[in-house]
Design a binder for these strands. Structure first.
Lengths: 333, 333
DNA sequence: TTGAAAGCGCTAACAC
DNA sequence: GTGTTAGCGCTTTCAA
């Protein structure tokens, strides 16, 4: 199990270990004959660079900490996938941490990552409070947020243009002939405030009445959307379309509608937000607004690399355009 | 950005830096007054242990490499979630790598992980060939596989009892009154051979005729299940239930059935395998066999820790029991 | 072109 | 109880 080190190779090659290091790092100041001989020897002996030791002297670990509330979530696992692929393509590896349900754990994992000497941190914040909560630590290391939840903070982030997304969706419903559109769901985080704003803006421009439905403690989950919708449908339905603030909420509403024999899209059109993978499933086919996850991940990694490698100061807010995914839950009036 | 080291604290405290190290590590050979004073000082100065340096001397990184074909997959992201939580609870952190679509990349990431000096590797293999492919590397570091795809290899793994799963499901259909049950889907990996075997065993015991349907190149995806099912349904339906080898295939079949106005479960009962999250969605509600993902992850981490911390040699095959999740796609005859 | 040696931040064995 | 020091495996000046 004892792994072979530079010294071992050096001894076998009859050179100093500095020479071996040079051969491997592609330094120009070494004879090409020596280099080849050494590289061949390294291969034979099964030598692999010890990154811990290298990190020690280089003061760079080529490690990126990825913090997500829960990797077991379609949006985040997709983001993580692209982030890891992109990071690795540039020589970085990913240290993954779930920031769990409570804010306390979020701070804990960031601390751990700092102790691990990661070169940078990519974080999907749990809540708008996250920024303040971990500021003391993120000041010490290049950090990029993925989400718009910290709109007014001096911190880099990449996010989808949430406001634009609901605007596009509302406009789409309008073009389909809908004039009574209900906005369904949470408005408690920055992200969701922006979504609501896009809807309001569209209503204003198009001369529609703004109508909201949400409970005080609304969360984004199918179960919660279902409960909210049951409550909603106990009142008369005097609107022809619903814009749900998240796909999960939309799916919950769909379930409630099914149970109460409200046909979607015949009686009611429905549009969601996020384009989580469930929306494309048979029997669901939810029309929705897509967050460009792949792009978000790649851009976030690029921004982080820029900070790490070029020491770029300041912050940038990278806003990506969401797109409308037409499926089967909206109909023309 | 320069972080504070032991030396800095030592200087500030007016002691040697070994003393600071002792205070922090909870060594008994130190005065409790000195300890408290130092700990307080560390806190004030914002000292955090440099894990890279520590790993260097301890020859232990407290790092576990997690290799999955694609974290952007419900089964794996759920596994990853529990693995990370459990690992961290025991002082380990997770280095995440996607082994991507090709076998070549799988070997690459394992090599990287080795260079990173991870204490152990947790791997969901891409294919039955994985074992042979990376053997040279996994011999050098404690490794636990998650999957049954290497049944006869001298290597530790944790997996669900796939054979038992299909047995249970077939028995369930039998008890519901079904006598003509078709097995639908792939049989090309060890995992899927075992699933098919469980079905065959149940058929034998219960006196049912074994009936298979699968295409040569069947893969587990909704799209593929859909194509296969369209083909299947172009022939007369002389069976009353279908056991799909994976939930994805089952969902594809569901879609095809909808299109061809074959009612499930009225005309045809359907059961899947895996209990991926999509199965519990409204309108889908697929009856299925659950792989105990949480348990699998936790057991895998425990096995790995045992190897790492106690140097346990040999290998163990940990087989967990799957369970039947009754939902809405099976009916009694 | 190559070797010698310092030093990254830490732990632990050995002194006192 | 506390200080001194070697050394983990590597990169990189500085000499030769």
């Amino acid at each position: 199990m004892k792994s072979v080190t530079l010294k071992d190779v050096a001894k076998a090659a009859g050179v100093s270990y500095a020479t071996v290091s040079r051969a491997l790092s592609g330094s120009p100041q070494i004879g090409s004959d020596t280099r080849e001989r050494i590289i061949k020897l390294c291969d034979e002996m099964g030598y692999t660079t010890n990154y811990v030791a290298r990190s020690m002297v280089m003061k760079k670990t080529d490690l990126i900490g990825l913090v997500v509330p829960s990797i077991d979530n379609q949006f985040m696992s997709e983001l993580a996938y692209y982030a890891e692929m992109s990071a690795r393509a540039h020589g970085y590896n990913i240290m993954l941490c779930n920031s769990g349900p409570d804010l306390k754990q979020e701070k804990t994992v960031v601390k751990i990552l700092l102790g691990r000497q990661v070169d940078g941190i990519l974080i999907v914040p749990q809540s708008p409070k996250t920024y303040e909560n971990i500021k003391a630590y993120t000041d010490q290391v290049p950090t990029v947020f993925v989400s718009e939840n910290l709109r007014d903070q001096p911190q880099s982030y990449v996010a989808a243009d949430n406001s634009r997304g609901t605007y596009i969706g509302t406009k789409y419903l309008y073009d389909l002939g809908h004039r009574d559109i209900l906005y369904f769901g949470r408005r408690h985080s920055t992200t969701h405030q922006l979504r609501a704003e896009g809807y309001m803006k569209a209503c204003q421009e198009l001369g529609l009445k703004q109508r909201f439905y949400n409970s005080e403690y609304s969360r984004s989950s199918i179960a919660h959307g279902y409960e909210m919708a049951k409550e909603l449908f106990s009142h008369p339905i005097d609107y022809t379309a619903v814009f749900a603030s998240t796909d999960s909420n939309a799916l919950g509403l769909l379930k409630a509608a099914d149970e109460m024999h409200i046909s979607i899209p015949d009686q009611l059109s429905l549009i969601g937000f996020d384009n989580i993978s469930a929306t494309s499933l048979p029997r669901l086919e939810l029309t929705t607004i897509e967050q460009p996850k792949r792009n978000m991940a790649i851009q976030a990694v690029d921004m982080l690399r820029d900070k790490i490698e070029n020491g770029t100061q300041g912050y940038v807010h990278q806003i990506l355009l969401p797109t409308l995914i037409k499926r089967s839950t909206c109909r023309a009036l």
